[in-house]
């Protein structure tokens, strides 16, 4: 692989979820930490779509926030185009323009008091890319690029439907001419027919502008549709990384298999969903060893005390002790 656009190495994020100091003293409790991400490493090549899937508590949004500099990592490094961006000084301005983010909730991601034109032009003005007149023209042009009309610059966000707002958010993300866009659940707040429009739009824009996407989603079918490579997160750890569609035909990690089995079957193939045993453990006190072991059908002794390390598989890599035990599964 050529030099990756984004390289993440050993990324870890802990949150202090302790009670206030006084309560801790009175109730004699220790400080408590929630490990949102532990030792996550992956690379994203130029022009590809890398997706992170996981259920709630898997820490997928935390990774997105660390990548765009909204949260500092507790450990590990993030390298964008060869330059570290996890420095304490924040992301260098010259790099910042080159990546953008699209958020989940199009009703919260646009300032309700601003006109659409101002919203879209905000990155242009912040980075000083154009004079105000050109910025306004550019905003109108971008609205047409995302399938709205240029006259919409004077409207307010509340005049638009959810799907239209997400288009506006995409136009804003495009306005600084980025190469890399982090998409945090871009369609999970939208209806399916609108979701299809937005996913198609994202693909068109990727082709047109050569964009690289980091897609965060809990929806496996969306991920399958969009991604070249997929990382599966469970309780903050990357359990499997695989080439796009292969993950769905030959999943390696038992959790991936479980997730796939749980997806509702629209094709009516008669396959009965296999309900999964148990629920996701509390991330404040995750199980020792492999975090998935209490729910895993392939669990053995080693899983209970040793954290599995990622190892190569035919379709990518996976972190599971069962892979060592000569394909008995």
């Amino acid at each position: 692989m050529a030099e990756p656009l984004l390289k993440i190495d050993g990324l870890t994020r802990r949150f202090d979820v302790s009670k206030p100091w006084l309560n801790r003293v009175i109730e004699r409790e220790e400080k408590q930490f929630l490990t949102a991400n532990a030792d996550v490493s992956f690379e994203i090549a130029r022009g590809e779509t890398f997706a992170l899937v996981g259920e709630s508590g898997s820490g997928k949004s935390t990774i997105a926030k660390m990548v765009v500099g909204l949260l500092p990592p507790s450990a590990g490094t993030i390298t964008f185009d060869g330059q570290r961006i996890d420095t304490s000084a924040g992301i260098p301005r010259s790099l910042r323009r080159r990546f953008q983010m699209i958020f989940q909730d199009p009703f919260a991601s646009l300032n309700p008091r601003w006109r659409v034109g101002e919203i879209i032009a905000e990155p242009i003005r912040t980075f000083g890319l154009m004079n105000p007149t050109d910025a306004r023209k550019e905003a109108a042009r971008l609205l047409e690029v995302v399938g709205l009309s240029a006259g919409d610059v004077n409207k307010f966000p509340h005049e638009f439907s959810g799907g239209q707002r997400q288009r506006i958010a995409i136009a804003r993300a495009l306005s600084s001419k980025p190469e890399f866009i982090v998409c945090d659940e871009p369609t999970s707040a939208l209806d399916v027919s609108v979701q299809a429009q937005i996913l198609n739009l994202m693909r068109d824009l990727q082709d047109e502008f050569g964009l690289t996407y980091l897609l965060i989603s809990h929806d496996l079918s969306v991920v399958r549709h969009m991604a070249n490579r997929i990382g599966v997160l469970y309780l903050g750890r990357l359990v499997e990384v695989a080439q796009g569609k292969k993950l769905f035909t030959e999943p390696q990690h038992p959790y991936t298999r479980m997730l796939l089995d749980a997806v509702p079957d629209l094709a009516l193939s008669g396959r009965r969903r296999r309900p999964v045993e148990g629920e996701i453990p509390n991330p404040i006190s995750p199980p020792p060893g492999c975090a998935f072991h209490p729910r895993c059908p392939l669990v053995h002794d080693r899983c209970r005390h040793e954290v599995p390390q990622p190892q190569p598989t035919p379709i990518g890599q996976a972190a599971c002790h069962a892979l060592d035990r000569v394909d008995t599964a």
Binding site: Q164, S193, A196, Q197, N200, R203
Partner: peptide, 24 residues
């Protein structure tokens, strides 16, 4: 018909989803 086509599935092969233009 449009609604069904717009849902991505785990088995479909096409690269583009069917989309219904506009919104409700």
């Amino acid at each position: 018909q449009g609604l069904m086509g717009s849902i991505p599935t785990l088995t479909q092969e096409s690269d583009r989803l069917v989309q219904i233009p506009g919104s409700m």
